[in-house]
């Protein structure tokens, strides 16, 4: 069974439909990229998957033993205050909240999990640094470590490279690829960077309020939808 199955999903804001007829599945180990223009419903779909927005119709079914609380999530950079006084360790540890229940303190295992994920993201030298004093790329790594604490199965990323310089962007894509292939965590990424999406993703969902395309990245390159979106020269 698939990790996530979306059937005829639709969303609206104040009665105005922004996305509809969305059908797709995400399986164990998939790397799905959701692409589309601004206002095509990408971010709304992401909010729907995270349970932050109720769909108007259709269904989102979590399968394969995945529960709706076990999603790792990397929000858009702008969603978090830059000057928040918190150490890297405090931020990453807060990702373990979904395994804490009502207990007031984090267990030793969860603290170890936080340290492990800080190390995995190469941030161990900054464990006790202030989150706000880090560079944009470093902050993203910290938030990735936090997301990895929250999940073992699937990671949702909302425009993860927005506002990063080209070098850091390349590093970020490499890190996400590593998370997908080495840690066997499925990835769903919203992005408007189609070229990189094609380079890394296994599957593409092209949204333009309704899905223009859903399938493997290889098929997408041959499709009509990509030719319109990429401007015709994507076939090489």
């Amino acid at each position: 069974m698939a990790l996530i199955t979306c059937t005829d999903l639709s969303f609206s804001y104040e009665g105005k439909t922004v996305a509809s007829h969305i059908n797709f599945t995400v399986n164990e180990g998939d790397y799905l990229c959701i692409v589309g223009e601004n206002g095509s419903g990408k971010s709304t779909l992401m909010k729907g998957l995270l349970g932050l927005k109720q769909p108007d119709g259709g269904s989102i079914v979590f399968g394969d033993g995945l529960s709706a609380n076990e999603l790792g999530y990397l929000p858009q950079q702008t969603a978090i205050q830059k000057d928040f006084p918190a150490s890297v360790y405090e931020v990453v540890l807060s990702g373990c909240m979904n395994q804490c229940g009502l207990r007031p303190r984090y267990s030793r295992q969860l603290k170890d999990l936080a340290r492990l994920n800080i190390r995995r993201m190469g941030m161990d030298a900054y464990t006790h640094s202030c989150y706000g004093s880090l560079s944009g790329g470093q902050q993203q790594r910290v938030l990735l470590a936090r997301a990895l604490c929250a999940t073992r199965r699937i990671l949702l990323l909302d425009e993860p490279v927005n506002g990063l310089d080209p070098l850091v962007t390349a590093e970020m894509y490499e890190t996400i690829r590593r998370i997908n292939s080495e840690y066997h965590i499925a990835v769903i990424m919203v992005s408007h960077d189609v070229q990189s999406a094609l380079a890394y993703a296994s599957h593409i969902l092209h949204l333009n309020n309704t899905p223009e395309f859903f399938g493997t990245a290889a098929d997408y390159k041959k499709s009509q939808a990509s030719r319109l979106f990429l401007g015709g020269d994507a076939r090489d």
């Binding site: 932050l52 609380n69 978090i80 807060s94 909240m97 979904n98």
Partner: peptide
């Protein structure tokens, strides 16, 4: 720190 993350992970 991050209300939507907390919400998304079931808090």
């Amino acid at each position: 720190f991050d209300e939507s993350f907390a919400r998304a992970t079931g808090t």
